[in-house]
Amino acid sequence: MNAALARAAGWWTILCIALEERLVYRGDFALGTLMRFLPIVTQIFLWWAIFDTIGHGTRDSANIVGYSFSNMVAYYLLTMVSRAFSSMPGLASGIALQIRSGEIKKYLIQPIGMLEFLLLSRLAHKLAYYSVAVLPFLLVFSICRGYFVDGWPAWDLLAGYVAALLMSFLLGFFLEASIGLIGFWFLEVSSLLFIYMLFNFFLSGHMFPLDMLPAPWDRLVSMLPLKYLAYYPAAIFLGKVPREELIGELWIEAGWVVFFIVTARVAYRLGVRRYSGYGG
């Protein structure tokens, strides 16, 4: 009981430190977040031109795989929200670096595992990030609220959306952590990571709605876990996921989360064994 309490206290401290650290630079932060919406501007104009073309001057009547122009813009804005949950900047490369520099040793002697520690500090970072980023996000979304033509989704979809977002955080974390842990076996993780980011960028739906993929790619990509990182929550919000499939899909996402939790833990255990075997 006491041990659990002490552990909780330790976690609380980690959380507080990360929060403070973030809040010091909040000015920089808010501006940086706002800047991150800039690439969407060019995307909007690209789609604007395309919808103008296929709608023959009346872009409101046109649609691409069920997305109207407003839907498309709303989609890009929503993927920004998904990414705010699922992206883990510096996580994999940080783990790989700690392995290479031998800093990993400190987790072997501390009473807290590396994955737990990193998860907590990431959680704290994210919380701090949201507390600052909420302002620019609100600003952009209120300017663009006209694009959300269907308003808020029904409560059950909204609940599914929140669940998908929260799971996307866990999925993003353990997926990237697993990649970082490859560093135990392979030194050049950074280039590998770049390739992963590339796939992530295109196949998570960050670049375009995954519904646009032609067969057989659509089926292939929908079987990958990457879609939960950006596309899936946005699709729920926009009502693109049929109600009857929602629960089932969320279970599959949960399955992927569990899969990567197990993968990361196993990889960590094997890696540490290999590491101490060599006497690092």
């Binding site: 690209l46 031109a49 395309i50 073309t53 296929i54 023959h56 001057g57 691409i64 375009f208 646009m212």
Partner: peptide, 10 residues
């Protein structure tokens, strides 16, 4: 993209 549109911009 070009599966869905012939041109970028009318």
């Amino acid at each position: 993209v070009f599966q869905h549109t012939p041109l970028i911009g009318p």
